[in-house]
Computed example of a mutant assay.
Amino acid sequence: MKADKSIDVSLGSDNIFADLGFDTEEATNLKVRADLMLDLRNYIELQGWTQEQAAAFFGETQPRISNLINGEISRFSVDKLLNMLGRAGMQVRVEVLPKAV
C-alpha cells in the first residue's frame, strides 16, 4: 500500500543563500560573489577559452580558473572578481534597493 505524503512548498526569495539560512550580511555577500562568478564563467565560455587560456588572460593559474568555473565561492572576494571583470572590459553596475516589506 502506498502512503500519501504531502510536500510543503514555499516560494523562495531572490537570494538562495538567505533561503538556506545564512545571516543577512553573509547571504548578501555570497549572492554578489555568485552572480559575479557566473558572469565571469559566461564570459570565458563565450570566448571559447580553455582554462589555461583564461588563466593567461586574467593573470591567474589554471587551478584558480577551475575554482571559478566550479563555483567555489569561498575562494574569491568581491574585490578580486570585480578586478577580473574589469580586465575583461566588463562594466559592473551596483544597484541598491530598499528592502521590500
Rank of each mutant, 00 (worst) to 15 (best):
N15Y: 08
S6N: 05
T61M: 01
I69F: 14
E26C: 09
K5D: 10
N29F: 04
S10Q: 07
I44K: 07
L38I: 11
R41V: 09
K5R: 12
L36W: 02
S13A: 08
V32K: 14
L20P: 10
N29D: 14
N42T: 14
A56G: 02
E25I: 02
W49G: 00
N42C: 13
G48K: 12
I44W: 01
I16K: 15
A56V: 05
I44Y: 01
D23I: 09
Q62F: 09
L30T: 03
E45T: 08
R41D: 11
T24C: 05
T24R: 05
N29V: 13
L68G: 01
D14P: 10
G48C: 07
I65A: 03
E45F: 13
I16N: 07
Q62C: 06
A55F: 00
M37T: 03
R64K: 11
I7Y: 10
Q53R: 08
F58N: 00
F22G: 06
E45P: 04
G59T: 09
L68E: 04
D19H: 13
T50Q: 07
L46N: 15
T28I: 13
A54H: 05
L38F: 10
L68F: 08
A34Y: 12
D14T: 12
P63Y: 09
I7V: 12
S6Q: 12
Y43K: 02
L11V: 11
R41W: 05
A54L: 02
N29A: 13
S6G: 03
I16M: 15
M37P: 04
L68V: 07
T50M: 07
L11N: 01
L11G: 03
G59F: 10
E45R: 15
Y43D: 00
Q47P: 08
V9N: 06
E52N: 02
I65V: 15
G12W: 06
S10V: 09
K31W: 04
R64F: 00
S10L: 12
E52W: 00
A18R: 15
P63D: 11
N42G: 13
Q53G: 01
K5C: 06
I65K: 05
F57P: 02
G48D: 13
V32S: 08
S13I: 01
G21M: 14
D4H: 05
F17T: 13
A34L: 10
A27V: 03
D4C: 03
F57D: 01
R33N: 03
I65N: 02
F22I: 06
Q62G: 03
L38E: 10
L40Y: 09
L30N: 14
S10H: 11
A27N: 04
E52L: 01
K31R: 10
D39A: 14
Q51P: 02
G48E: 11
L46S: 15
D19G: 12
N15V: 03
I69G: 00
T28R: 15
F22L: 15
R64H: 12
A54Q: 04
G12S: 14
Q53N: 03
R41E: 11
S6H: 05
T28F: 08
I69Y: 07
A54C: 09
K31I: 01
Q47I: 07
F22C: 15
